[in-house]
């Protein structure tokens, strides 16, 4: 069973409508997914944080992580805010990606932030910022379909990276 199906199964087990915060964990042989749900109903979920951990990323080098970031930037177009690699840090071996243009609603700005870390974590969160204030984390509004696709794509990207490492 893929990670996507494991997550789907966990979500199906929850009583609806759900008002969180609730942490949902699902795993398969190599990957683990953790979702912090703020809300969940039949159509979609309000997700405060999504983490997919993969053993494929355990000892990966920064350049590979950057390449993974660039691949994900091309792949995750359905978030409607194209992501791009913003910063790469050799010391902690981590890559920070963000929406290339934050979404604007008047003075409010929203953007996704995806972290790729050598330890094996891929973590997606969403931020809200207004001029003159410190940014704050807000839940992502995702349909169930998008949420599951996201989990699947992150898992697939980790697998692709492992295959590339072998070559």
């Amino acid at each position: 069973m893929s990670l996507k199906h494991a997550v789907e199964k966990q979500l199906a087990a929850l009583a609806l409508p759900l008002v969180g915060p609730v942490v949902v964990q699902a795993s398969d042989a190599r990957e683990q997914a953790e979702l912090e749900l703020a809300e969940l109903d039949r159509l979609g979920a309000s997700v405060a944080r999504l983490v997919v951990s993969s053993t494929c990323l355990a000892g990966v080098e920064l350049e590979r992580l950057r390449a993974l970031g660039e691949q994900l930037a091309r792949q995750l177009t359905y978030l409607l805010e194209p992501l791009r690699v913003i910063e790469c840090d050799g010391e902690s071996c981590a890559v920070q990606m963000r929406s290339s243009q934050p979404h604007r609603e008047g003075d409010d700005r929203f953007f996704y932030e995806l972290w790729l870390r050598r330890g094996g974590q891929m973590e997606l969160v969403r931020w809200h910022t207004v001029p003159g204030a410190v940014k704050e984390q807000v839940p992502m509004q995702l349909t169930r379909e998008i949420l599951l696709r996201l989990v699947d794509d992150l898992q697939q990207a980790a697998w692709d990276l492992r295959e590339a490492e072998k070559i």
Binding site: R98, Q101, P102, R109, F111, W127, T129, V130, P131, G132, A133, V134, K135
Partner: peptide, 28 residues
């Protein structure tokens, strides 16, 4: 402030340094 807003370093300085040194000044 960048397009991604303002980080939390300012808040950290204001709570951990500014009260102890009057020659440390912050501004947004």
């Amino acid at each position: 402030e960048s397009p991604y807003g303002s980080g939390d370093y300012l808040r950290a300085l204001e709570s951990a340094v500014v009260p102890y040194h009057d020659n440390v000044i912050t501004s947004q």
